[in-house]
């Protein structure tokens, strides 16, 4: 179970980068580096940070966002008690994680 968990963890973490590489003319990346996690093999296919995380997100009202978002653009929506925020998954395809704070609580939005 852990073996499959680890393999799929890497798949989930890196599938978007992998697909992007396959779909573009980028040079081939190095062979995956194998390490063990809890006795099972983990495949590292990208250097840490190769998919740039968002550390200092900036937010805009809908009046400004209308020119940057399609109506049908899929979002992850966080609805708090004091504030609500939306994150485009098409944009997150290239970043995969946003370090943010909602209602004073640190959160990680992951995709």
């Amino acid at each position: 179970m852990v073996k499959r968990l680890v393999a799929v963890l890497i798949c989930l973490l890196l599938v978007s980068a992998s697909v992007a590489a396959e779909d573009s003319d980028k040079p081939k990346r190095p062979e995956p580096v194998k390490t063990l996690i809890q006795g099972d093999t983990m495949y590292t296919v990208l250097e840490p940070g190769a998919i740039p995380a968002i550390f200092d997100p900036t937010f805009i009202p809908f009046s400004a966002a209308d020119s940057l978002y399609h109506d049908e653009e899929p979002l992850l929506a966080m609805v708090g008690t004091q504030e609500s925020r939306g994150y485009s998954t098409w944009h997150l395809d290239r970043h995969e994680i946003v370090n943010d704070v909602l209602d004073g609580r640190p959160i990680a939005i992951t995709w």
Partner: peptide, 25 residues
């Protein structure tokens, strides 16, 4: 977290804010 669309989120939560991005795309 909710999976929704820009239009629906704007309608349901008009006071919400959106993560900025460089372009429409």
């Amino acid at each position: 977290v909710r999976h929704t669309t820009y239009a629906e989120f704007k309608s349901d939560f008009p006071e919400a804010v959106m993560l900025t991005k460089p372009e429409l795309g």
